[in-house]
């Protein structure tokens, strides 16, 4: 028996919009810790890890660890039927091949349930080791989204370099080249407008912009994004989900020519 009641149902809607273009089918895992997912894109270049901690739910009942295979496009279709202010409850019975999403309007005058078929998904769970990163950049998520979008109109790849000067995003394409440098900036009115660069060692890595742009679909989840870089490791692009957890995207670097 599974019953997860999320008062801020819009968070789940946003999570699905953030990941559904990257991953088609995925197993959602439910345990005492929370509601989580780990999945790779079809070409195994990127990985998404989601955690919604049990404490973030108003009511969280998960009698035993369970893994539920879902088609994310179908799940998104159903969650789009929930209002932005709706409370969403995820319900499942042991051994059932379906899951129910219940949507309650804030005034309790409309209650809907949508039943979705589950599927068997063969997925490999990867162990993600704790790592020391050479550089960690924390910046406004909208700014990161803007940079990825702007650069992708010039080139296909982005070189992200962190030095003591700041963080540089560069691209090159048929029509020319572009470089965007951000310096650390903590003298802002609001903390969510700050850019904070933590550098242990200079680092420079090349990534496919197509994936970076896909990650920025998570922008509505968080005003800030954290980009962790280490040579010889996938970059981590993390969007924290207020009070609840995170969506982390891992992207394997391209090999430098």
């Amino acid at each position: 028996m599974l019953e997860l009641r999320l008062v801020q149902g819009s968070l789940l809607k946003k999570v699905l919009e953030a990941i559904k273009d990257l991953v088609t089918d995925a197993n959602f895992d439910c345990s005492a810790t929370g509601f989580s997912l780990q999945a790779m894109d079809s070409s195994h270049v990127a990985l998404v890890a989601l955690l919604l901690r049990s404490e973030g739910f108003e009511h969280y009942r998960c009698d035993r660890n369970i893994s539920m295979g879902m088609n994310l496009n179908n799940m998104s279709k159903m969650l789009k039927c929930a209002g932005n202010d709706d409370i969403i409850t995820i319900k499942g019975d042991d051994g059932s091949d379906t899951i129910t999403f219940m949507f309650e309007s804030p005034t309790q005058d409309k209650i809907a349930d949508f039943e979705m078929k589950l599927m068997d998904i063969d997925s490999e769970h990867l162990g993600i080791p704790e790592a020391e990163y050479h550089a960690i950049v924390r910046m406004p998520s909208a700014e990161f989204s803007r940079i990825c979008k702007d650069l992708s109109s010039i080139g296909d790849t982005v070189v992200i370099s962190v030095t003591k000067e700041g963080v540089k995003f560069s691209t090159r394409g048929d029509i020319g080249a572009a470089n965007i440098v951000l310096r650390q900036n903590t003298t802002v009115d609001k903390p969510e407008e700050a850019t904070i660069i933590e550098m242990n060692e200079p680092v420079s890595l090349t990534f496919a912009l197509r994936y970076m742009n896909s990650f920025t679909k998570a922008t509505p989840l968080s005003s800030m994004v954290t980009i962790s870089l280490s040579s010889e490791l996938p970059v981590v692009v993390e969007y924290k989900i207020a009070e609840m957890g995170y969506v982390r995207f891992y992207l394997a670097p391209k090999i430098e020519e």
């Binding site: 790779m40 195994h44 990867l126 391209k254």
Partner: peptide, 14 residues
Amino acid sequence: VNPQRQITAFFSKS
């Protein structure tokens, strides 16, 4: 064109 690596080259099956 820079060749693309895969995630599985960095993280192993748990």
